[in-house]
Amino acid sequence: MAALVEIRNLSVEFQTARGSFRAVDGIDLTIEAGEVVGIVGESGSGKSVSMLALMGLIVWPGKVQADRLTFDGHDLLAMTPAQRRRIIGKDIAMVFQEPITSLNPCFTVGFQIMETLAVHEGGSRADRRRRTVELLGQVGIPAPESRLSSFPHQLSGGMNQRVMIAMAIACNPRLLIADEPTTALDVTIQAQILDLLVNLQQDRGMALTLITHDMGVVAETAERVIVMYAGQQVEEQPVDALFANPAHPYTAALLDALPERSAGRRRLATIPGVVPGIEDRPRGCLFHPRCRFAEQRCVDEQPLLVPDARGRFVRCHYALVDGEPTNKEPGSIRGEPQRETTP
């Protein structure tokens, strides 16, 4: 059976005044029906952009390229925009980061959900209304009937996000993409929304892609994890294996930054530096300026995303095993960044 989503060598470029910028650089991703995939990375790592590209939501000046981009065996790139719109919003739906700005302030939440139903499923007005009330109930909105005529600014952030989720699941999607769905919410609400998403995923058997910068969220929800850095995939592993034995130094550093793992240490571990932007994109491995284990080879040669000796997909010349780099040439100083070559 074909995978639900297959992405091969996906790139997204943005033309800017100062040249083109690759926000997503050669992503490969397969999502099976009904599975929960976590995509992790810092802001600006291209995790949202790659999913927007899947949805066909990249607009000028962005440009999407891929060797293969299919949903349920259908080639998304070969489709006309009209054909694609039949899938978008119906079979693939998305929940965004900022619930308040993501809902249209000029329309009631009822209208906005019913609109999705009208476009994809038709049916009578009364049917749509009944479905919408049902959906609002399913996402845990109290007195859903009376909420139909509310405007987004009359609801709290958490309620708005529930409305967004109701809208996304309205047409029983087979893949739900949640882009940092809890980042903009109060901490107490975050867990509720995550629970809601996971419950909906299990009840409906839909696939769920969870984009987040929070390793903790991934640990609780995902089955498989993609780690992204500066537009590239750096690692892909099942969640347990990833947490037990991260292969990429960046993943390891992210995990070290978790408060739960810092128990006993006096300070939370951090990763020095920032994700490279348009002007300071390094040669070789994109992570080498911030990597504890960087070697001359990391500066010269870009690593590929290939299975290491243990069969883990990782984009690193010296994939970590139990926190130690492997594959090192004899004579190199272990664990010490080469200061003289990376000024």
Partner: peptide, 26 residues
């Protein structure tokens, strides 16, 4: 550039409706 226009497109609405209703109304 607003988020709700992106949401409207993510719902699979045709461009005429995205621009003529969701964007224009605001």
């Amino acid at each position: 550039n607003e988020d709700y226009v992106r949401t409207a497109r993510a719902k699979g609405l045709p461009p005429v409706r995205v621009i003529g209703l969701h964007a224009l109304r605001n």
